[in-house]
């Protein structure tokens, strides 16, 4: 992980939240290292610095274990985007998002964007078994197939051994409730269709799309942050007085 070592100051923060075992670490691995490898349950948290054009984005992988729950608020503080992750084969993991994790996001930026992500789609959805990822994917996949017991895997692939417990509609409904929790107008917010994803860290299905969609969406937030540093206090005041016009301003940049 040489990227983390450079100690560059990140411009913006993206946080992965969700119950243990839903695949947060796997998603981040898939995106940054382009492979699916064995993970151990995350202790505390970890982060990765992603160079996105001229910007540095820090992506925080948090620990889903109850034990570390208390750290969540701190990780979310000042976040520009939060990825609420659940496991499509586990209804409880979606419920936990609402019960346990949503409140952690109170410390995030006021304009933080939220994505609801159902991972392990490969277990339920045949299209997710095929990777969208083009670069050297199949190779990695075999690497991990060797590690998992092959029989288990083949049954899961053919007969969808794990039934889908969470539908896309469930996730979109949750997204609506998140907006309500945040006191946001559905109309003026990003639509659920755009912000609810089903992914597979294992095959890479939708993983790049997820991260890159978010990066593109947080870009205005980066620009505004930079401007706040550069601009004189008078301009800041003006912007504050603008109040609701803030969003409009950012979208025109």
């Amino acid at each position: 992980m040489p990227e983390t070592s450079k100690m560059k100051k990140p411009d913006v923060k993206v946080v992965l939240l969700g119950d243990m075992n839903v695949g947060k670490t796997s998603l981040l691995h898939r995106y940054t290292e382009r492979k699916f490898k064995d993970t151990i349950s995350t202790v505390g948290g970890a982060f990765f610095l992603k160079q996105w054009g001229p910007y540095n984005i820090s992506i925080w992988d948090t620990a889903g274990r109850e034990q570390f729950h208390g750290l969540g608020s701190m990780y979310c503080r000042g976040a520009a985007a939060i990825i609420l992750t659940y496991d499509v084969t586990n209804w409880q993991s979606l419920a936990e998002l609402e019960e346990r994790f949503l409140s952690l996001t109170d410390t995030a930026n006021h304009d933080c964007i939220y994505a609801v992500v159902g991972n392990k789609a490969d277990l339920t959805d045949p299209t997710a078994q095929q990777s969208q990822d083009t670069d050297g994917m199949s190779e990695d996949q075999t690497e991990c197939e060797d590690r998992t017991e092959p029989e288990v895997l083949s049954t899961s692939l053919t007969s969808s051994a794990s039934p889908k417990q969470v539908t896309h509609e469930d996730a979109m409904a949750l997204y609506g409730r998140i907006l309500r929790y945040k006191g946001l107008e559905e109309k003026s917010s990003l639509p659920a269709e755009k912000m609810c994803f089903e992914t597979s860290a294992k095959t890479g299905y939708n993983v790049d799309t997820l991260f890159e969609t978010l990066f593109d969406l947080v870009l205005p937030s980066i620009l505004r942050k930079r401007n706040e540093y550069q601009e004189s206090p008078t301009v800041d005041l003006e912007e504050c007085r603008g109040g609701s016009s803030k969003r409009a301003r950012s979208s025109c940049c």
Binding site: V43, G45, W60, M74, R77, T107
Partner: peptide
């Protein structure tokens, strides 16, 4: 500011 800038 209450922000963690390094991983634990």
């Amino acid at each position: 500011e209450g922000v963690s800038q390094r991983a634990p």
